[in-house]
């Protein structure tokens, strides 16, 4: 990458609220804020990691980008074109450029359709090529994800593929259109470690050979560190920290990121790891809706400041931003 980062995707002030139905015995439905006014930029050619726990809203970000859901507020730009309101032909054109790899390869392949049917579907939808050239494109995509020789797999049905093979088929389906931008939503959380590593390396090759930009959504900081150039940490719908991957891991600035790193079981090189100890033993009450999202569990937080005002993302060093009142002045425990 060159020094002047060139954003391909910009998310601006996105807010997403899910309404839950009230119970039968009265009681109104409650609103769950999945994403609370998030903004971020993803640069051309990078692998961007979005790391968060379950319920943090990380998957929602991906689903909003591919228009599987609509945001309540905010805008998303792909190459400076606003995409949230796209319809009809414009939407279809956009679909060709942005693809998604889903979490569960046991759910994301239609059991009634063969590998060829599955991978060639996007080509058919966008009327690319004729049957012969389509087969070539499909075989090429299959080779690029390591399903070779393609002839062995082309006419198989999903029930005769292993989990890793299924996920490769899903990646080939996403890649066959040569998209500019791909969202990988926890693509390995259902797979074994040795198979996950294969998938990770396929994604790295994809970026290298097809110059595609990847948004990698994961719950694992370790996986994000391995794959990503930059990492964003998200907690309960709020971005906590964004920065270069290695920097986030080695010198996290946000207490939540530090708590995450503390919690990861370590083995092997345990000597060099220090504990930050930023997690509060027992949760405290959040004072009001305005408090920092991590306030209830944060040891660093102060009632007067963090409990009253939600911190904004602030740049603390080039490319590294933190949403914490104490990030700049630093804190000691």
């Amino acid at each position: 990458m060159d020094n002047q980062p060139n954003p391909i995707l910009q998310i601006e002030d996105i807010r997403k609220v899910y309404k839950t139905k009230g119970s039968v015995l009265g009681g109104p439905g409650t609103d769950v804020v999945a994403l609370d006014r998030i903004s971020l930029e993803i640069y051309k050619g990078e692998i961007f990691g979005l790391v968060g726990e379950s319920g943090s809203g990380k998957t929602t970000v991906g689903r909003l980008i591919v228009s599987l859901e609509k945001a309540n507020q905010g805008e998303i730009f792909l190459d400076d074109v606003e995409i949230t309101g796209l319809k009809g032909r414009a939407l279809k054109g956009f679909r060709r450029r942005v693809q998604m790899i889903f979490q569960d390869p046991y759910q994301s392949l239609n059991p009634q359709r063969s590998v060829y049917d599955t991978i060639s579907e996007p080509l058919a939808v966008h009327a690319i090529g004729n049957p012969e050239t389509r087969q070539e494109l499909v075989e090429e995509a299959m080779k690029s994800v390591g399903l070779s020789p393609p002839g062995d797999f082309l006419h198989r049905y999903p029930h005769r593929l292993s989990g890793g093979q299924r996920q490769r088929v899903a990646i080939a389906r996403a890649m066959v259109l040569r998209p500019q931008f791909v969202i990988a939503d926890e693509p390995t959380s259902m797979l074994d470690a040795s198979i996950s590593a294969q998938i990770f390396n396929i994604l790295l090759e994809m970026r290298e050979n097809l110059s595609v930009t990847i948004l990698f959504i994961t719950h694992s900081l370790a996986a994000a560190r391995y794959l990503c150039d930059r990492i964003a940490v998200i907690y309960r719908g709020n971005l906590m920290e964004i920065g270069p991957g290695e920097e986030i891991i080695r010198s996290p600035r946000h207490p939540y990121t530090q708590a995450l790193i503390d919690a990861i079981p370590k083995f092997g090189h345990s000597g060099e790891i220090k504990r930050y100890g930023t997690l509060l033993g027992t949760e405290r009450e959040g004072t009001n809706g305005l408090c920092c999202a991590f306030f209830p569990r944060c040891k660093v937080a102060s009632e007067t400041r963090c409990g009253e005002e939600r911190p904004r993302l602030n740049e603390c060093s080039p490319l590294h931003s933190v949403a914490c009142h104490y990030a700049e002045e630093g804190f000691e425990l």
Partner: peptide
């Protein structure tokens, strides 16, 4: 050995993972 080198970690160097080929 292969299993250990197919796990991404947050410690140590960020080296290329060595997936175990095959199934």
């Amino acid at each position: 050995k292969a299993l250990l080198s197919s796990y991404p970690t947050i410690t140590g160097d960020r080296s290329l993972l060595q997936p175990i080929p095959g199934e």
